[in-house]
């Protein structure tokens, strides 16, 4: 949530309606971690770098305006999840900057922010609080959240006994009830069954109609091109296309 972030200056070249500004972002990972004393000593003696590095994002810049729905597309390992993690603040970029306006809720992975040993009920409160809600507003929305997820019977069961679909239902339900201006969704709808997927999509359309900003990662290209107005394609950490969602899908298929 941005409520706890410190205020920064406006990014350069930010449009008047911009919600998310990603400016020349690079993200470098070290592929092999040599951590034992022996390996550290060897690396020092040979003067070798510790493991080889890898650019997961290599100079990505983009702007998302308020109310836009953006599909982030690309093959496996192209850097989509990494970009969402940078936008949500889970990771910081190696260089470049990310700036936001508004409260953000990220569904980066199924069950993010859930603890397996807590019950569904406890997890709703914990996850709601992580996403920036206070106790009265979680309490007020609790019934609505559970009703949307349709898992009333299991709400007092520890979530480690949930199926992955049930996990998704509860997590999605909490996230859509936290009132964020920016919504990040990473490949999570795939584990829901057909009726629940449809319900989620309806809810996402509602969010869109309310003018919320959405960034969606999915390999379901048909769904995405129908849902989103704009599409961005990543290829090995580089942004190779930015245009309408339908054109983005076509571009990705031609890669």
């Amino acid at each position: 949530m941005t409520s706890m972030s410190t205020t920064s200056s406006a990014p350069r070249a930010a449009g008047p309606n911009a919600r998310i500004v990603v400016d020349d972002v690079r993200m470098q990972f070290v592929l092999r971690h040599n951590r034992s004393l022996k390996e550290l000593a060897m690396a020092m003696v040979r003067g070798k770098d510790l493991g080889n590095t890898f650019m997961a994002l290599d100079g990505v810049s983009l702007q998302v305006d308020s109310g836009e729905t953006v599909a982030l597309l690309g093959h496996n390992g192209s850097g989509k999840s990494t970009l969402l993690k940078l936008i949500s603040g889970v990771m910081h970029p190696t260089s470049g900057s990310v700036r936001l306006r508004g409260r953000i809720a990220g569904l980066i992975e199924v069950g993010a922010g859930f603890h397996p040993d807590l019950t569904g009920r406890e997890n709703v409160y914990l996850n709601g609080a992580i996403l920036g809600m206070d106790e009265p507003s979680i309490r007020a929305r609790f019934d609505e959240i559970v009703a949307f997820s349709e898992i009333e019977r299991f709400i007092d069961t520890e979530v480690k006994h949930y199926s992955s679909g049930m996990f998704l239902r509860l997590a999605f339900s909490v996230a859509v009830h936290t009132d964020p201006e920016i919504f990040l969704i990473d490949e999570i709808l795939s584990v829901g069954d057909e009726p629940f997927q449809r319900k989620c999509l309806d809810r996402i359309r509602e969010l869109k109609d309310e003018g919320r900003t959405l960034v969606v990662v999915s390999h379901d290209l048909n769904m995405v091109s129908e849902l989103c107005s704009r599409g961005i394609v990543l290829q090995r950490g580089n942004q190779v296309f930015d245009g309408t969602a339908a054109d983005a899908v076509a571009h990705l298929r031609s890669l």
Partner: peptide
């Protein structure tokens, strides 16, 4: 939008 300050995600 105008009411909301720019923030850097993950920097609290």
């Amino acid at each position: 939008l105008v009411d909301q300050p720019w923030t850097e995600p993950g920097k609290g």
